[in-house]
Structures are given as C-alpha cells and as structure tokens.
C-alpha cells in the first residue's frame, strides 16, 4: 500500500490524521469489547445454571409423562391434553445492551393451575407432569430470553473482536509504514536538493573565479 502513495506533504498530513483517528477508534472498540465481554459473562453464567436446572426438571417431568403414557391409550392421552389449561401470554420488551436490541420476555403468571380433563380415566402421573410443567413454564420463558441475549451478544463480541484486530494488526501498522515511507522519501528529496544546491554553488563559484582571473 505504501508504495502507491504520492510522497508529498499533503499525503503525509492526511495519513497522520488517519492514523490518529484509527488509534482513537481502536481504543473505543477495545473498550466496547471489554464491556460486552463483562456483560456477556454475567448473562452466560445465569444462562448455564438455568439451562441445567430446566433440563433436569424437564427430564423428571418427562419421566412422569412416560409413566402416564404407559397406563393410557394414545387416544386417551390426546383427548386429555387437547384442551390447554391456560393460555400463555407474554409481555415482550426490548433491552438495549451496548446498542444491541435483546429481547426481554416476561411471562404473566396468573398462578392458577387447572386440570381440564376428567380424573376418572387418567393416572396421577399425568397430573404431576402437567402441574410441574406449568410451574416450570416461567423458567423456560426466562431461559429463552436469556439464551437469545447470549446468542446476540456472542456474535456481536466476535464481530467487535475482528474489527479491533483488523485495526490493530492491519490498518495501524500499514499507516505507520506509509508515514515512514513518505518521511523517508521527503528527507531523501531534501538531501538531493541540498546536494544539488551545493554542486551548483561550486560551479557558479568556479565560473566567477575564472572570470575574475581573466
């Protein structure tokens, strides 16, 4: 890149300005990255704990459900579970973390757990499974919003890191190199100029001395 630049004072000046901007941008991006990572670490820890908890609870619920399924016919199960006990309503909001719009979903819990099937033909395991799942629902919703936030933060951090690295290891060294090249070229020109002046002075002096001697 450096060789394609004109070695003039104008270009040198603009390159120096660009370098200053790049350095400031680099510092800003680096700060952004640090802050993003800090936020990310807080969320990802919560996310991991919640996921482990939800998966463990779901496994238990599914075990109950499988037990219930063994005691019932397939049609019976479908019939029992066809009518939802309640409707899930979500309150969706956005939270901005470092200019990234992350979802914040909260579940409006009315606290009522109804069973909408007859107890005569269903085993008690089914009740347990449905009630436990109802209780787990707020956590599952929280998990969803946490995981999405983590996803978005992670990809943003990756993007920022790439930008920081590109500026730090490509742009800044490149500009420094071109500034160095232009400075060297200008100094070389200056030296050439001085030599030329000295040489012309010598020639003129010699001519004058010759004229006086005649």
């Amino acid at each position: 890149m450096a060789q394609s630049l004109n070695p003039t004072r104008m270009v040198l000046y603009s390159q120096k300005k660009r370098l200053a901007t790049a350095k400031r941008g680099h510092k800003l991006l680096k700060d952004k990255q640090d802050e993003l990572v800090r936020r990310f670490m807080a969320i990802i820890k919560k996310n991991r704990a919640l996921r482990i908890e939800v998966e463990a609870s779901l496994a238990k619920i599914m075990a109950h459900f499988v037990n219930a399924k063994l005691k019932m016919s397939y049609e019976g199960i479908i019939e029992a579970l066809m009518v939802p006990t309640r409707e899930v309503t979500l309150a969706v909001d956005y939270k901005t973390i470092m200019n990234i719009k992350t979802p914040e979903i909260s579940y409006q819990d009315d606290g009522i757990i109804d069973l909408t099937y007859g107890f005569a033909f269903t085993p008690s395991e089914l009740d347990t499974a449905v009630i436990d799942l109802s209780r787990l629902l707020p956590k599952m919703i929280e998990l969803a919003s946490l995981e999405k936030s983590c996803d978005m933060l992670a990809s943003e951090i990756e993007k920022t890191r790439r930008r920081v690295n590109a500026i730090e290891y490509i742009m800044i060294p490149d500009m420094e190199e071109s500034i160095h090249y232009i400075t060297m070229k200008l100094e070389d020109n200056e030296r050439g100029n001085i030599t030329r002046l000295m040489k012309s002075k010598e020639i003129i002096l010699a001519k004058t001395v010759n004229r006086i001697e005649y």
Partner: peptide, 27 residues
C-alpha cells in the same frame, strides 16, 4: 427465539454445547 429442549427423559446436552460454543466464540 429458537430454543432446543431435551426430547425424552435423557438430555443430549445440545443446549449446553450451544452455550459452550457461544463462550468460545466470544472470549
């Protein structure tokens, strides 16, 4: 929001793997 959940009584830890991958990508 697409979220993986364990299908049966056993979890295949896809969700945890996703978390791991996110951490690796980020830091």
């Amino acid at each position: 929001v697409l979220i993986p959940i364990p299908s049966g009584t056993k979890s295949r830890a896809i969700g945890l793997k996703k978390i791991k991958k996110n951490v690796e990508n980020a830091i």
